[in-house]
Design a protein around this nucleic acid. Sequence first.
DNA 1: CGCTAAAATGAACCACCATTCATTTTTCTC
DNA 2: GAGAAAAATGAATGGTGGTTCATTTTAGCG
Lengths: 195, 195
Amino acid sequence: MRKKDPEKQEAILHSAVRIFAHQGYHVAKMSKIAEDAGVAAGSLYLYFKNKESLLEEVIDATWEDMRRRYEHSIQAEGLSPAQKLVALIDIVFDLFMDDPDRAIIFVNEQHHLEQKGIVDFSTKKEMLLNLGAQVIQEGVSRGDFDPHIDIMIFKEFIFGGLHQVLNLWALQPEQVDLDKIRKALKPIILNSIAK
Amino acid sequence: MRKKDPEKQEAILHSAVRIFAHQGYHVAKMSKIAEDAGVAAGSLYLYFKNKESLLEEVIDATWEDMRRRYEHSIQAEGLSPAQKLVALIDIVFDLFMDDPDRAIIFVNEQHHLEQKGIVDFSTKKEMLLNLGAQVIQEGVSRGDFDPHIDIMIFKEFIFGGLHQVLNLWALQPEQVDLDKIRKALKPIILNSIAK
DNA sequence: CGCTAAAATGAACCACCATTCATTTTTCTC
DNA sequence: GAGAAAAATGAATGGTGGTTCATTTTAGCG
């Protein structure tokens, strides 16, 4: 009577993360993931239902990670809206810093699951974006931020900008120090919303 | 002795644009493109070498369009750096306004060709981004823009932000007026770089 | 009007890849 | 140590979809 090997499951996930991040979901081959993990192709299906489940596992875990980071950072007392905005930015940077491959998959590949109607991340996304909206609204109320700002557009714009810059960095993380980028972007973002 | 029908070629391109934009390159099926264009699947290969050539045709045409728009707008005399920056933003907005599907393909799908080493758009991208860099450098020199700005990071950030917002708009163009978004974004961008 | 050559067709072909499964190996329990 | 059951294997299977091609149709030319 054998038991599944947790280390083997981790190896498969680790290989999947690397290959999904570098090649994209569609181009990534199950046979390559198996090879990279050092298991037979058939073994993948002992630990994961199918290719999509593999991707879902990675993304769900990152949503959970994201949620925990938010809880720890934004709830801190005594922060001004600008400091909260900076804290939100730091969450995204830290996500990329800690695991660039997972972060890349998180921002680039989850639409594959959504497109097939397998999962619906909109609730999670809404919650996350609402948090950002609250911060901006608070800043506007206190007179720290420009009251004419369109919060919806601003959120998407900042998200897209961070996405683009961090994506480029993740492709060649050794080229530019992430903290340098972080320092360069914070004033740009704070300026853009300043009153 | 028959001749190829230019209208048929346009129909195929038109269908390809719509389907590539809405489903993405990988998920898009040649059989669906043929069906949508009202031709047999085999006919596609009379007008285009293969699936990749179809995509390349769309993107090349959009690069050409982009180049022409740049020539017409940025070369205008008497513009301040801020006005030039605004003109660059307008080019991107106009591209999406005029043909959302083509614009979406242009920003989302060209990495498929690059990934396979079929084409190299880096020269074109460099030229485009250098133009933006020149505008920012001019603004810094004149004291209009923040001298501490990291031009490279700023460019990517703005591109990514515009990309994200315009992508969302293109998915549901009837939901929000594009000019409203344009008006909302311009001050955000100009503020972000202001001295 | 006849002939030629190219367009057009759409099923067949072929390659690819996710997933399955018959068989072997291994581990856990008694 | 034997037996049972699950892991593990990796080639086979089946499905998908890009591309080809044998045949038919059509249009352009003389």
